[in-house]
């Protein structure tokens, strides 16, 4: 059935998706808040940049990340000056790529949830002398919970389903960058269809269950 390398790919994939999702919930919240409330002329531009990964093919993102994170690229120079070394072919590199690649799937549901709250609850909280922080944690976050659930699930699932970017910057290293989607690709290319089937069917089942849970638990929550 599943070999040791298959299991290690599964473990790595779940780890990558978990780290990415947690990071994205933290990074995505202020971005979503700003996008939901701002009247700035930059709103359109920032929203478009966040949404780019939805329309760009993974090859574009993978190619530019490879060049940017390489020793000659701006990100690569920065990480090397900071003594972090190069990002491609490392788990950290995959996390950086995934944060960028899955960002719209986390930011957009949260932003929608924030927008749905509207001005009233915030004004009411202000008249009750709640500080902005207090308002955010005791009014906004509870009201935006369905949005956060959608964001977390979609961010996680989308990272699990990532392939092109990982293939381009990962280098296929066992235990470090060889995630399930790449492992399936390897099996298919090596004509090991039986192993490919086990993993691929597992992915199908996993993705279906995740989305089913999301839509059952959160039937009214806004989705990306």
């Amino acid at each position: 059935m599943l070999s040791d390398t298959d299991w290690s790919a599964i473990r790595l994939t779940l780890e990558l998706a978990a780290v990415t999702t947690v990071l994205l919930l933290f990074i995505g919240t202020p971005i979503a808040w700003w996008l939901a409330r701002t009247r700035s002329a930059w709103k359109g531009a920032v929203g478009a940049v966040v949404a780019l990964p939805i329309v760009l093919p993974p090859t574009v993102i993978g190619f530019y990340l490879l060049v940017a994170m390489g020793p000659e690229g701006p990100v690569g120079r920065l990480t090397q000056t900071l003594g972090l070394g190069g990002l491609p072919f490392t788990f950290a590199g995959l996390v950086v790529a995934s944060v960028f690649y899955s960002m719209p799937f986390v930011v957009q549901p949260i932003q929608n949830a924030f927008e749905a709250i509207g001005e009233r609850p915030l004004e009411t909280a202000a008249t009750l002398r709640a500080s902005p922080f207090d308002t955010f944690f005791s009014v906004v976050l509870p009201l935006a919970r369905p949005g956060y659930l959608t964001a977390g699930v979609l961010g996680f699932a989308h990272t699990v389903g990532e392939f092109g970017v990982v293939l381009m910057i990962g280098g296929n290293i066992p235990d470090k960058t060889r995630v399930v989607s790449v492992q399936i690709y390897d099996h298919v290319e090596a004509l090991e269809y039986a192993q490919a089937h086990w993993l691929a069917a597992g992915m199908m089942a996993f993705s279906f269950v995740v989305l089913l849970l999301l839509y059952t638990l959160n039937p009214t929550g806004r989705r990306a």
Binding site: L66, P71, P88, G171, N172
Partner: peptide, 20 residues
């Protein structure tokens, strides 16, 4: 120290960009 390209073109690209 191995990093693996899916085919020889990708392997070349890893070296060409200086990442390997």
């Amino acid at each position: 120290k191995f990093v693996q390209g899916e085919n020889i073109a990708q392997t070349f690209q890893f070296v060409r960009t200086g990442n390997a």
